[in-house]
Computed example of a mutant assay.
Amino acid sequence: MSDGVQTASSVRSIDGVGDRAMHWLVLGGNRIAVSALLVGAVVAVFFVLTRAGALAIGPGSAAASAFSSGLIAGTVTLVTISLSINQLILSRVFGSPNELFDQLNGTRDLRRRVREHAGESAVPNDPAEFLDLVAETLTDRANRLQSACDDGSGDQPPAVADYAAGIAAYGESISAKIESQTAIVNVLEVILGTEYAKNMTATEQLRNEYGGRLPVEAERELDAIGDILGAVAVTRQFFKTLSLQQDFARLSRVVAYSGLVALAASIAMALVYRPDSVTVPAGSLPLVFSLGLGVIVTPLAVFIAYVFRAATIARHTVSVGPFVPPAERPDAE
C-alpha cells in the first residue's frame, strides 16, 4: 500500500488439503469426532501390530498386569484431572456482587460502543450476529471516510483511499465468513488471525501522518474506525474466554462419562486373562484386545482433542492490542 500505510483487507483463509485437515484436527472439527478419530487410529494400529505378532498379548504376557493395574490407575488419574478442571471452571463463574457488576458493566460498555457507532437502538445477543454488526459498521465507516475525503480536488493522499478500501474489504470479509446462530468457537475462528492488529497500526499511522490534512468529518470517521477495531480486539478475547469455558465444561463432563466406561473396560479386560489361558478364542484376542484398549484410551483421546483446541486458541490470542508476538504470526507455525 502506498506511503507505507498497510492494511489487512481480508481475514485469514485456510488453503490446501493438509492445512485444512490440520485446522479441522486442532480447531475447527467437532471434538467428539476428533476423539473418535484418535481412538480409531489407536485401535487400528494395535490391531495390525497384534495380528502381525509384533506385540505379545497372549497368556503369560504383560497385558494382564497392564489392564489390572496401570491402565486402571491412569484412568482414575485422568478422571481426577477432569474434576479439577471442572472446579477451575466453577471458580471462574463465581464472584462477589461487585465483581459480577464489574463484568456486567464491561460487557455493557463494549455493546454501547458498538451500538453508538452502528447507529442502532440495540445490538444482537447472538455472538455471530454481534460480530456481523461490528463488521458491517466497520465497512460503513470506511466508506464514509472515503466519501468525506473525496472532495473532488484530488489533493488527498493516495494512502487515505487505499486505507479506506482496505478497511472496508476487511469488514466485508468478516461478514462473508460468519454464519448466524453458529457455535461461538466458529465465530472466534473468523477473527483469530492478526489482521485486526495490522489494521489498528495502520489507523494510528494514518492518523499521525495525515490527520491534519483530513476534513473534520474524515477525522471523526477515522476515530470511529479505530474504536471499532478496538472492539474487535476486545471481542476476540471475550469470545475466547467464553469458548474455553464452554469447552472445558464439556470436557469434564465427557471425560467423567467415558472414564466410568473405561474403568469398567479395564476391569473386564483384566478378567479376560487367566494364569495360563484367556476366556476368548485365541483368534479373536487381537480384536478384543484392540477394542478394549480403544475404550480405555477414550477419556485420554477426549482430553487431547479438547486440549488441541484450547492450546490453539490460546496461542493465537496472546495479545489484546496491536502487539503481535511471534507465536501469533502465520509464519511462526
Rank of each mutant, 00 (worst) to 15 (best):
S277D: 15
P281S: 15
I191M: 10
F238L: 14
A270K: 03
A202V: 08
E172V: 03
V297M: 12
K198Q: 14
L222N: 07
S277I: 05
A169T: 05
E179I: 13
D162C: 02
V261K: 07
L192E: 08
D223H: 03
D247A: 14
V280D: 02
K240Y: 00
L287W: 10
L287I: 13
S175F: 04
S290I: 09
E179P: 01
L263Q: 11
V254C: 02
A264D: 08
A164Y: 07
P215W: 01
V232F: 14
V216E: 11
A265N: 02
L188V: 06
L222S: 06
D155N: 13
A262C: 11
A265C: 13
S173N: 04
T279A: 00
V187F: 04
I228Q: 08
T298W: 12
V261L: 14
S284L: 14
V280Y: 01
A169Q: 13
A202R: 06
T194K: 09
L251E: 07
E217Y: 02
R236W: 09
L222H: 09
F289M: 06
F239Y: 15
A265S: 15
R274H: 05
V272A: 04
K240I: 00
Y210R: 07
S284T: 10
R253K: 14
L293N: 07
V185T: 10
Q245K: 11
G283C: 05
R207I: 02
S243R: 11
F248P: 01
Y163D: 02
L214D: 02
S173F: 06
Y196F: 04
L251S: 08
S258W: 12
L192Q: 07
Y163M: 00
G166W: 02
L263I: 11
G166Y: 00
T182W: 03
L287F: 13
L271H: 04
A265W: 11
A233R: 07
I296F: 06
E221H: 15
S284W: 12
A265Y: 10
A265G: 08
A270H: 07
V254T: 10
A202T: 00
S258Y: 13
L293A: 07
A165P: 00
Q237E: 06
D223N: 14
V254A: 14
V261I: 15
E172N: 12
T235H: 08
Y257S: 13
R274P: 00
V278Q: 02
Y170I: 04
N208L: 09
L271Y: 06
R213T: 01
A262Q: 12
L206C: 08
E172A: 15
V232Y: 07
F289Y: 15
T203H: 11
L271V: 04
S266A: 15
M269N: 11
A282N: 09
P157F: 03
V216H: 01
L222R: 01
L291P: 05
S290A: 15
I178M: 05
A270M: 10
F248G: 05
A268Q: 09
E189S: 12
E217L: 09
D247T: 10
A224L: 01
E209V: 03
Q156F: 01
A256M: 15
V288M: 06
T279H: 00
N208V: 07
L287M: 14
Q245E: 14
E219V: 13
